[in-house]
Design a protein around this nucleic acid. Structure first.
Length: 487
DNA sequence: ATGTCC
């Protein structure tokens, strides 16, 4: 693979059309990159090599990177890849290993001033920790819920007691804001997953998981560019919000394991392959493709229900600390690792998002009804100690199938970060020991050193690129006050 | 990401 970072003037294949967008003619097809120049050049040649392999999958219509793109297994995190629904392919590699990984945001009726005392933040973190296990082999507190119901019906499979605002599919309340509270699929595929994995997944309901997953208590800062939308969404400056970042836990892993071998067999039988043996894909209409797609959707149901259950536990923790008048209203739940059928420009397509977030603009018919006029919230996490963002799609996002970034994007590996970053540096970036410290549920930070902000790009610059490219706008910045992390 | 090698 030759160098794809040539001098722009010397290479006729290198096209730059705007400061935040370029189309790159790779040997296997076109790659669209939405990023400021320096962020693009920082991505590295491996990122483009991976795109070239992904573009070798037959019938691909479109592939792009967001500014937070970085190397992943088979496919970069930060990829949007589109096929036609009729002659399309599905790729477990372009969905990613943590199927249904995504974000959920709840709005409270509290103000940042209510959490100014560091002791209050500590009390809240402890109260959350008590209800949401984060340790290795963690077991959740929701054994009364049937896993089968969750996998088949998503949020609609939860008992009423876990839906505090009285949501039922017939009764429109705040939960109708939630993106795809139920994914439908060919349920026979569930039989592929062996019994022990069902038990494991059942035990994990209501647990956070490790890596970049987190629960954060944040203070909102609305952006003047979209203050009208902020008001319509019920946001106000200084308002305390809860952000949850988690995925489908071991269930998603089981889906990858048990449908992955069938996908590999299908590729072999059909003589399919690319430059990367780890890049897995199958025709949408093949048995393997259908099985994977069905099981993937079961994992999406698991992920959205799991985030919902954690929010239920957090709501309970808030009531313990702040009294029964404390509220946690659902703003939105939106994943950034998935694939599914979507209609764009009147065409039925199959869209993959791996570490990219859908952000529909105002008026788009696919917005849930309560967000039809404003566009739905696009939930973007920052790294530890840095702000997260509530975004809204812009009209111009249509040229990227309404996909934006999914966060800061890793800039160095977990191992490299542990070598490079010192615990003291991490602690000072969280202002540990100061009155305004970001309270974390770990006594020592060694266990989560690989999550220090030094491991990530600057999320503010990622957001600048997304806004600069005309894909989305900022509605509010979410400043962290406290964080719960797994290991 | 993941019961990260039952």
């Amino acid at each position: 693979m030759h160098d794809y970072f040539p001098n722009e003037r010397n290479d006729p294949n290198y096209m730059s059309t705007t400061p935040y967008y370029r189309r790159i003619d790779l040997p296997a097809g076109d790659l669209h990159v939405f990023a400021a120049d320096d962020l693009f050049h920082a991505m590295g040649a491996k990122v483009l090599e991976m795109a070239n392999n992904n573009l070798q999958i037959p019938n691909i219509r479109y592939m792009s990177y967001t500014p937070d793109a970085h190397v992943g297994v088979g496919t970069c995190i930060g990829t949007t890849a589109v096929w036609g629904a009729g002659d399309g392919f599905v790729s477990p590699s372009i969905v990613g290993s943590d199927i249904g990984c995504g974000m959920r945001v709840h709005l409270t009726n509290l103000d940042a001033a209510d959490l100014r005392d560091v002791k209050v933040r500590r009390k809240l973190v402890k109260a959350i920790e008590k209800r949401i296990p984060v340790e290795n082999h963690a077991r959740g507190f929701f054994s009364d819920i049937r896993l089968d119901d969750v996998l088949r019906k998503g949020l609609h499979g939860l008992p009423n007691k876990y839906v505090p605002d009285g949501y039922t599919p017939r009764k429109a309340t705040s939960l109708t804001h939630v993106e795809c509270s139920r994914f439908r699929y060919e349920e026979d595929a569930l039989n592929r997953i062996p019994e022990p994995l069902w038990h494991r997944a059942h035990r994990q309901l209501g647990t956070l998981g490790g890596g970049n997953h987190f629960i954060e208590i944040q203070a909102l800062e609305t952006d003047e560019a979209n203050r009208g939308i902020a008001e319509r969404w019920g946001l106000r400056d200084g308002q305390v919000a809860v952000m949850i970042h988690s995925g489908s836990r071991a269930w998603g892993g089981a889906v990858n394991q048990y449908s992955g071998s069938e996908v590999a067999k299908t590729m072999h039988r059909l003589g399919l392959g690319t430059g990367d043996p780890k890049l897995a894909f199958a025709p949408l209409g093949s048995d393997a493709g259908r099985t994977y797609t069905a099981l993937m959707k079961s994992a999406l149901n698991f992920a959205v229900a799991n985030r919902h259950l954690m929010a239920y536990a957090v709501r309970d923790a808030f009531k313990e600390v702040f009294g029964t008048q404390a509220e946690l209203r659902t703003l939105y739940d939106l994943m950034h690792n998935y694939a599914g059928e979507e209609s764009h420009g009147g065409e039925e397509l199959f869209v993959h998002r791996k570490g990219t977030t859908k952000a529909l603009p105002a008026g788009h018919p696919d917005n849930p009804e309560p967000y039809r006029e404003t566009g739905h919230p696009a939930l973007i996490p920052g790294s530890m100690g840095t702000s997260s963002y509530l975004m809204v799609g812009a009209e111009g996002g249509g040229r990227n199938y309404h996909s934006i970034c999914h966060g800061a994007g890793r800039v160095r590996s977990r191992n490299a970060t542990k070598q490079l970053v010192k615990v003291d540096e991490f602690a000072s970036s969280l202002r540990i020991g100061q009155e305004d410290e970001i309270v974390v549920n770990h006594k020592g930070l060694e266990a989560i050193l690989d999550e220090s902000p030094q491991a990530y790009k600057d999320v503010d610059r990622i957001i600048d690129s997304v806004v600069g490219a005309g894909l989305a706008g900022v509605v509010a910045k979410c400043r962290p006050l406290a964080a719960i992390k797994g290991v």
